[in-house]
Simulated assay, not measured.
Amino acid sequence: MTPLAETARAKVNLTLRVLGRRPDGYHELESVVAFAGAADSLTLEPGPEAQLTVTGPRAAECGDVGDNLVFRAARALGEKIQGLRAGHFTLDKHLPAAAGIGGGSADAAAALRLLAASNNIAFDDVRLLDVARATGADIPVCVGSRACIMTGVGETLTPLNLPPLPCVLVNPRVPVPTREVFAELGLKPGQLRTGLSEVLEAIAWPAADASVEAWLDVLAGGTNDLEAPAIRIQPVIEDVLAALRATDGVRFARMSGSGATCFAIFNSHAEAVQAAEAIRAQHPDWWVEASILS
Results as ranks from 00 to 15, higher is better:
Q51N: 14
Q51V: 14
Q51W: 14
Q51S: 15
L52S: 13
L52Q: 07
L52F: 06
T53A: 13
T53K: 14
V54A: 01
V54M: 04
V54R: 00
V54C: 05
V54S: 03
T55V: 06
T55M: 04
G56W: 04
G56Q: 03
G56H: 05
G56L: 11
P57H: 12
P57E: 12
P57T: 06
P57G: 11
R58M: 15
R58L: 08
R58Y: 11
R58I: 02
A59W: 09
A59M: 05
A59V: 06
A59P: 08
A59F: 06
A59K: 07
A60P: 07
A60N: 13
E61Y: 10
E61Q: 15
E61F: 11
E61D: 15
C62F: 03
C62Y: 05
C62V: 11
C62W: 10
C62G: 05
D64Q: 07
V65K: 03
D67I: 05
D67Y: 00
D67H: 09
N68M: 00
N68L: 01
N68Y: 03
N68H: 05
N68A: 00
N68D: 05
N68W: 07
L69Q: 07
L69V: 05
L69D: 11
V70H: 04
V70A: 08
F71W: 14
F71I: 13
F71S: 12
F71V: 14
F71R: 15
F71M: 15
F71H: 15
F71A: 14
F71P: 05
R72Q: 13
A73F: 10
A73T: 13
A73M: 11
A74W: 04
A74R: 06
A74H: 08
A74G: 09
A74L: 12
A74C: 11
A74I: 11
A74K: 04
A74Q: 03
R75Y: 03
R75G: 09
R75D: 13
A76S: 14
A76G: 06
A76F: 08
A76P: 08
L77F: 00
G78A: 02
G78E: 02
E79M: 10
K80P: 01
K80Y: 00
K80N: 02
K80G: 02
I81T: 07
I81N: 07
G83Y: 10
G83F: 09
G83Q: 05
L84E: 01
L84I: 02
R85K: 15
R85V: 15
A86F: 08
A86D: 05
G87M: 06
G87F: 03
G87H: 00
H88P: 01
H88M: 04
H88Y: 10
H88I: 00
F89W: 04
F89Y: 05
T90A: 11
T90L: 11
L91W: 10
D92E: 14
D92Q: 13
D92K: 10
K93S: 06
K93L: 10
K93Q: 07
H94G: 07
H94L: 12
P96G: 03
P96K: 01
A97C: 08
A98K: 08
A98R: 06
A98L: 09
A99G: 07
G100S: 00
G100E: 02
I101V: 09
I101K: 00
I101C: 03
I101S: 01
I101F: 05
